[in-house]
């Protein structure tokens, strides 16, 4: 079995898939740290469906699908953020409405297509094994852009995740940084769309960071663990899916979920602290 696996790595498609999975796994798990800490889980889930509507429209009108995915994703998170900021609507309510609306749009766009298009369904369910060289370049380019922005605004992103109002009161341009965070979430969703699909993409953002959260009280360690778990489960998931001939997206997500439940069992946070164990 192992020689057969090693043979697989010689194929171009396999190398591309593993590279795409590693990039997506690392990036999603890094963004996941802010999503988990800022409590934006549902925003990401909604964004992935909005981005899929963009993909469907792209295939319908013959425009670049990922470009429209970016437009739809960013528009959705900005509208959501704006509504919350104005106090008009809670974040989960507005994203719930946009989530279902954009999914309805996606179904309409697919219905308007004259013929069955398997590539659209690739973005819905994920097909990392069919990722092309150009797509790897695009994913890599977007990932570099995001990593650059994360590095530039790391301390501000951390502060607004901790407490946005306190950050603003301390002189950090918190509103702008919050919208930057929403934009980065939308871009991450688009980067990962082809790999695991719109339905499962958010698991790649949410699960590694949630797993790491169980294991440490330190932000640096949490970030490191999250990236290691995200990258490892993404790459391993692709290998498992190829060897056992199962879809790659679900393979990655199920593997990450198994690691999450394992983390719950060994989490030091779950172990009951005896009374008085806190610092006096």
């Amino acid at each position: 079995m192992i020689p057969a696996m090693l043979d697989l790595f010689a194929y171009d498609f396999m190398q591309r898939s593993l590279l795409a999975a590693a990039i997506v796994g690392a990036l999603c798990s890094l963004m996941g740290v802010f999503v988990v800490l800022r409590g934006l889980a549902f925003v990401g889930a909604g964004t992935s469906h909005a981005a899929f509507a963009g993909v469907a429209l792209g295939y319908l009108v013959g425009w670049p699908p990922l470009l429209l995915a970016i437009v739809f994703g960013i528009a959705t998170v900005w509208i959501t953020g704006w509504l919350e900021e104005r106090g008009r609507m809670k974040l989960d309510v507005s994203i719930g409405i946009l989530y279902t609306t954009t999914m309805a749009l996606a179904i309409v766009f697919i219905g308007l297509m004259k013929t069955y298009n398997p590539e659209v369904y690739g973005y819905l369910f994920g097909s990392v094994l069919s990722v092309t060289g150009e797509e790897v370049l695009l994913i890599g380019g977007l990932a570099v852009l995001e990593l650059g922005l994360l590095a530039l605004f790391w301390k501000e992103l951390l502060f607004i995740a901790f407490d946005q109002e306190m950050a603003e009161a301390s002189g950090v341009p918190a509103r702008g940084i919050f919208f930057l965070l929403l934009t980065l979430i939308a871009l991450t969703v688009v980067v990962a769309l082809k790999t695991v699909g719109a339905i499962l993409v958010f698991a790649m953002i949410l699960i590694p960071a949630s797993t790491a959260y169980q294991l440490t009280h330190s932000l640096t360690t949490l970030t490191l663990y999250s990236v290691i778990i995200g990258t490892t489960t993404a790459v391993t998931g692709v290998i498992v899916s190829t060897v056992w001939d199962i879809p790659s997206g679900p393979s990655i997500v199920l593997l990450a979920t198994a690691v999450f439940f394992l983390s719950l069992l060994i989490s030091p946070k779950r172990l009951k602290q005896p009374l008085g164990s806190r610092h006096p």
């Binding site: 800490l37 407490d163 330190s218 932000l219």
Partner: peptide, 9 residues
Amino acid sequence: VVDRDFPVT
């Protein structure tokens, strides 16, 4: 107001 279990030292 602040999540005091936020993972920071």
